[in-house]
């Protein structure tokens, strides 16, 4: 590998990264929207902050907080038989779905619950509502952007890998190192999910955050919800959970290789 190839490599690497960043930015571009007819609720804030999985983390945290679910140190979740209702006596669709998912004998690993709930119609519906109001990017676009944003880097690594296999004998260790570094970089980039909120969504989120900080939250229901652990998880992810044993329990990876949602006849089997 000579200096020219190195320059080409550097150019392609920078180009691929710029492309990836642009794509991730572009997916949350402003879109047509319907007026927002009511303040956001906790799960909508969670969705705008971190997408479907954040909603699931938040719901799990909230129901554990309300004694409707129990998590063990091993991250196994069981229902306690309690149901959480809003002041009008209604059960939130996301909560209802989460409770249904936990009705498995022996409990369910928390990470599987999050995966199943994030893909549930309840969270999907919530996401679509936000998309229609121009607050969030369509989930399919976000997923696509996440994959496409790293494609050039994977391509670069593959091309160099091919070069390594077919190419001349010199500089092999250096080339192998570059292949590794490039691929690692691509994988790392993939680990960070793209943002979900559009500029309008970010503004709404900012208002919520501002209201929370100043204590002047206009919708009292949201203020109450945001005050607890679930509010912190909604905004900051599981890492922001204030209770460390619970945080560790909820972030534990399941011990089973296969994933399957209960009951299989419902939602998850179709995806």
């Amino acid at each position: 590998m000579n200096a020219t190839s190195l320059v080409w490599y550097a150019l392609l690497l920078v180009g691929g990264t710029v492309w990836g960043c642009w794509l991730r930015q572009h997916v949350t571009r402003p879109r047509d929207w319907l007026p927002l007819e009511r303040p956001l609720d906790l799960y909508e804030v969670a969705y705008l902050s971190g997408g479907p999985r954040r909603v699931a983390d938040t719901a799990l945290t909230r129901l554990v907080d309300h004694d409707a679910l129990r998590v063990s140190r091993h991250g196994r979740v069981h229902a306690t038989g309690r149901v959480v209702t809003d002041p009008t006596g209604q059960v939130d669709a996301v909560d209802a779905h989460l409770l249904a998912l936990t009705a498995v004998p022996g409990g369910v690993p928390a990470d599987r619950l999050v995966t199943c709930l994030a893909a549930s119609p309840a969270v999907d519906f919530l996401g679509r509502w936000l998309v229609e109001r121009g607050l969030a990017a369509p989930p399919a676009d976000v997923r696509r952007a996440r994959w496409l944003s790293t494609t050039p880097l994977h391509g670069l690594a593959a091309a160099m890998g091919l070069h390594l296999v077919l190419g001349v004998g010199a500089h092999r260790p250096g080339l192998a190192g570059l292949v590794l570094v490039t691929e690692l970089f691509a994988v790392l980039l993939h680990q960070f999910p793209p943002g979900v909120a559009t500029p309008l969504g970010q503004r709404v989120l900012h208002d919520v955050e501002e209201a929370r900080r100043t204590g002047a939250a206009p919708p009292p229901q949201l203020a109450a919800a945001m005050a607890g652990a679930a509010g912190q998880v909604a905004v900051g992810g599981l890492a922001a959970h204030p209770d460390s044993p619970l945080r560790r329990a909820l972030s534990r990876r399941g011990e089973r290789a296969w994933a399957w949602c209960w009951p299989s006849s419902s939602s998850c089997s179709s995806s």
Binding site: A259, W260, S264, S269, S271
Partner: peptide, 11 residues
């Protein structure tokens, strides 16, 4: 084979 439900759900 467990494969029928194994791949039923992958995100």
């Amino acid at each position: 084979s467990p494969s029928r439900w194994w791949h039923r759900f992958r995100s």
